[in-house]
Amino acid sequence: MFNLLVNAGGWADNHDTFSHGRILEYTAPALVTQMRVDGVLNIAALTAMPTLFMDEMRVDGEEFARIGTIMSIRDGARGQVLLDYIYDANVPPIPIAEIYRLRSRLGINDYEFSRTHWAVKDVDLFRFMLTELRGSRRHPRIFQLPETATLVNDQLSVMMPFANSALVLAAIQRAAGSAGMRCDRADDIWDHQTVMEDVVALIDRSAIVVCDCTGRNANVFYEIGLAHAWGKEVILITQNQADIPFDLAHLRYLHYHPNNEGLATLEAQLLARIRTLRGG
């Protein structure tokens, strides 16, 4: 989750005031009950989240937003609260026009760009930055990618040895379908002249990547590295625990048997994990 603070007058460097009456506008009712208990703001919860500070959007579209952390929230005079905050020095200013373009990913509607308010959004802000706002870092030398990522929230991809059982793939596809996701494997796609281009394009747009480490396939491990580097949710599976390399052994993985009972268990475990990653 993250705080979205929009202010018509812009933001001072480290502290400012905000109208108490506009806090938690445009916030889902379930989140409101978490952030305001018996009419009192849950300051611990609000200050624990990252914050996106924005000016109200102007016609010229030249404003920039900043990402930072609220350090303290105190009562002020005349229905105001006093905020102390710091901006993250490692995150450069973000054009508000870019946030507007990607507003649906952040759960922000059009009206919020011209309304001073404080909302809480149920979106992982830093994952959003990794998958959407990373254009300057997307310059691989051996394959081509669009300048900015186009994350498809219901896209799941499967990375596994081409020779692996079709029954394993079918179990993964059933789990994805039950969770309301489309499921693709690179060899099912022919959008580019090379298989490698199709693989990286599929990983790039996927929200979740399932990787089968069975057999220690070098291609799969390369694809796991890409998925991790691009901030994807990666689910590791394997028929043999010894096939999980040392550098990945600290991560949780699903161990399955390639028989009917084992694949049924894998399907159920994958479905549960996918639903957890998608927030329910």
Rank of each mutant, 00 (worst) to 15 (best):
L31V: 14
R58C: 04
M54N: 04
V59F: 01
R36A: 10
D16V: 03
R66F: 13
G68C: 07
Y26D: 09
V59G: 00
I23K: 09
D55A: 12
L31Q: 10
G76I: 12
G61N: 13
S72M: 00
E63G: 10
D55E: 14
S19L: 15
P50Y: 03
T69H: 11
P29T: 13
P29Q: 10
A12M: 02
T47Q: 15
A30G: 04
G68W: 07
M57F: 07
A30Y: 12
R36G: 08
L24C: 04
D38E: 09
E63R: 11
W11F: 06
D38S: 14
R22P: 01
D60Y: 09
V59A: 02
I23M: 14
D38L: 09
P29L: 12
M35R: 02
M49W: 11
I73R: 03
R74S: 12
A30N: 12
V37G: 02
T27V: 11
M71P: 00
D38F: 07
L41E: 05
T69Y: 08
F64P: 00
G68H: 05
A12N: 11
L46A: 15
F53K: 02
S19A: 15
R36S: 04
T17M: 08
V32G: 02
R22I: 01
V37P: 06
R66C: 03
I67C: 00
A12Q: 06
H15T: 13
M54R: 07
D38T: 09
A12R: 10
F64Y: 10
T69D: 08
L31D: 11
T33S: 12
P29D: 15
D60G: 01
M49K: 08
E25T: 05
A44H: 04
T33W: 00
G39D: 06
S19Q: 14
M54E: 04
E63K: 09
L46E: 04
F53S: 00
L31I: 14
D55C: 11
A65I: 14
A12D: 10
D60C: 05
R36F: 01
F64K: 05
L46Y: 04
G39Y: 09
E56F: 07
A45P: 03
M57S: 00
D13I: 10
H15M: 12
R22Y: 02
L52A: 08
V40L: 14
A44L: 02
E25G: 01
P50F: 07
R66A: 06
F18P: 13
P29C: 10
H15W: 10
A48D: 12
T17K: 09
H15Y: 12
Q34W: 07
P50I: 08
S19R: 14
T51I: 11
I23R: 06
Y26I: 05
M71F: 08
A12Y: 05
G39F: 04
G76A: 14
D13T: 14
V40R: 13
M35E: 05
T51G: 03
G21V: 14
A45N: 05
E63A: 11
I43H: 12
E25M: 09
A45M: 13
M71N: 15
D75Q: 12
S19Y: 15
A28F: 07
